[in-house]
């Protein structure tokens, strides 16, 4: 009897990339729902626009590169990029901004480098930073969270804002939008007010909840839960989120202890803005992150430190995207210098 020749090993645990990506999507759902609840229809529009543009540009690029479309499109990586990008953008971002960010993420951030597995930078963050640098005004179009002021605009008003770029009749953009707590704090502290003053302020004070910012506590808390589930599922390695969060707590505590009036608490930092989204979903993008155990710890901590610096002293509302991209650059070095000690090798690296 003749048999087919094959090569060992013949067993597999049958995990696949699609499964991993889908689990990331599932883990994003609770946090996204909270985002939608607190920041309104814009979140949904961002998601829809980003997903359609990302999938379309992925298909287009695969065709240009003469690669099979079906398997690459089905791996779910473009979908994850789209969701991360959409959830990072302000809810009232005009449609073209989301489109440009998505296009950049997929075309430049991913495919010009060779597609999945070859991109040195996190594609979602590439897209995000491009629009952040190019359109700083539009990047501040956050709505007040549910329960603060008038809350977010209704469905038709949101459609008008997102697709025409102008405020609905009888309203002004300034009245509809509101800066995020992180941004507010930075602006006010730069104006020489202290944290106590900002928190007690007649207008801004409302933004701050018992833990961090109204709504943000929930959003971050649910991302954290989703992230823990991902770790339990073995989709992501706990090292990056842990070192990221611990480093952020340490550094923000350090400054808060030195000068409580000018620096927010560790709790505020860890549960504000995109912290948890970054910790569990963005920094853990395996392709652009470090792959060695030690390297991942340094990588996560590095992102936290840079993000903190930009949050406090930089010119942008949040620093995580820059921090991620900057740490992406260090990955080849990190990987090289943090190789684990191979079995039977002496401690000194040869």
């Amino acid at each position: 009897m003749l048999f087919k020749k094959a090569d060992a090993p013949y067993l597999s645990n049958n995990s696949n990339v699609q499964q991993l990506m889908l689990k990331v999507i599932y883990a994003l759902i609770p946090g996204s729902i909270a985002m939608f609840w607190f920041f309104g229809w814009g979140v949904l529009f961002n998601l829809l626009i980003a997903i359609s543009v990302c999938l379309a540009s992925e298909t287009m690029m695969l065709k240009f590169r003469r690669r099979p479309v079906q398997p690459a499109l089905m791996d779910g990586s473009a979908l994850v990029t789209a969701c991360l990008l959409a959830l990072a953008l302000p809810p009232l971002a005009p449609w073209w901004l989301t489109t440009i960010a998505s296009l950049f993420a997929i075309v430049v951030g991913k495919h010009l480098y060779g597609g999945l597995g070859f991109n040195p930078f996190n594609p979602a963050m590439v897209g995000y930073v491009v629009v952040l640098i190019s359109f700083p005004r539009e990047m501040t179009l956050w709505t007040p969270p549910m329960g603060v002021g008038d809350g977010w605009p209704g469905f038709m008003d949101t459609v008008t804002i997102v697709f025409s770029g102008v405020a609905p009749v009888g309203q002004t953009m300034d009245a509809i939008t509101m800066a995020t707590p992180i941004d507010t704090l930075k602006t006010q502290i730069n104006l020489a007010y202290d944290t106590e003053y900002v928190r007690a302020h007649r207008v801004y004070g409302e933004l701050f909840g018992p833990v961090s910012g109204v709504g943000w506590e929930w959003v971050n808390g649910l991302y954290l839960l989703g992230g823990i589930w991902l770790i339990k599922q073995g989709v992501i390695d706990k090292r990056i989120p842990l070192s990221f969060i611990i480093a952020l707590i340490l550094i923000s505590n350090l400054f808060a202890v030195i000068d409580y009036s000018s620096y927010s608490s560790a709790l505020f930092h860890t549960l504000s803005g995109g912290t948890m989204l970054a910790a569990f979903f963005i920094a853990t993008d395996p392709v652009s992150a470090s792959t060695t155990p030690k390297g991942r710890i340094i990588y996560g901590a590095g992102i936290a430190c840079i993000a903190y610096i930009i949050r406090n002293w930089g010119g942008y509302p949040d620093g995580i995207a820059f921090a991620v991209l900057l740490m992406n650059m260090t990955v080849p070095l990190l990987d090289y210098y943090t190789q684990p000690r191979t079995y039977g090798k002496s401690e000194r690296r040869s």
Binding site: S15, N16, V17, L20, P71, D75, S77, G115, L116, G117, F118, G234, D237, P286, V287, A289, T291, T292, P293, R296, P340, R341, T342, Y343
Partner: peptide, 17 residues
Amino acid sequence: MPCIRCGKCVEVCPANL
């Protein structure tokens, strides 16, 4: 599929490669 550098292999390698 291309390698996505997830590092699962690093976790299981008995030679610690």
